[in-house]
Amino acid sequence: MAVQSLQDIRRRIRSVQNTQQITRAMEMVSAAKLKRAQARVNAARPYAAKMDEMLRSLSAAAEGLDHPLFEKRPVRRTGVVIMSGDRGLAGSFNANVLRMAERLLHERPREDLRLVVVGRKALQYLTRRGWKPALVYTDLGDVPDATRVRRMTEEITGLFLSGEVDEVFLVFTRFISTLNRRVVTEKFLPIEGAASEGDSAGDYIFEPSPDAIFGALLPRYAVTRLLAAQAESLASEHSARMVAMGSATQNADEMINQLVIRRNRARQAAITKEIAELVGGAEALK
């Protein structure tokens, strides 16, 4: 870099320090939000596990699994639910989701795809590329809102039940740990793989009938899955942002250290120069 005046370097240092304060604050805020989001991920597990279990004993007991949400049809159109975040500055969180989504979207002609876009980031990215999403959900909040996810599920299953799409995939980020998350693509509809070999109905009495309970259970099963996906996606976003802001804060530290060295050197150079000038001036007076 060209020679900078002492003034310039001091200004730089102050500016980096200001940025660092912001990144540090964002890191702490994300840590707090992550804690809440993570608690929600864990709190939702017992219900989901029990429902899974119930679904298995039911599908072993039910006669025909001919619920509309189970219906496998030849696929003409595919729905893709893409879960991103509302905000950026979360490292590669949004980019990773969108990259995975792109891969899926390239497999089929555009006219055979219907997009369900969750989060403002994915919406911006996809509309810029000329996509017209069938459904859009933004302003997600920091933890999932069960009422909204319920409505969301109704609308997405609506696309499937009306025949607008014949299958639905879910692209979202699984939360593994604070430092570890993975974007996954999962089949959402038709609901499949419920019954496996060796599941038994047990000796349960089913009231009113296995099929009736089944009909009531499946829509809720869909809600539970979407709610879990949303919870994990939000927890992933907060953790990604926390980590990104943490390393930004560290980078700022390094930058400040180097600038301080440069500032000291520049100050020393200025002093030396002044002394030299004084000495030079004194010599000239002799």
Binding site: S57, L58, I205, E207, A212, I213
Partner: peptide, 17 residues
């Protein structure tokens, strides 16, 4: 879903909506 039901201890295994 078909009316109120009471459950006491040692009830037979049951799944209901």
């Amino acid at each position: 879903s078909e009316g109120y039901l009471g459950i006491l201890a040692h009830h037979a295994p049951l799944i209901t909506a």
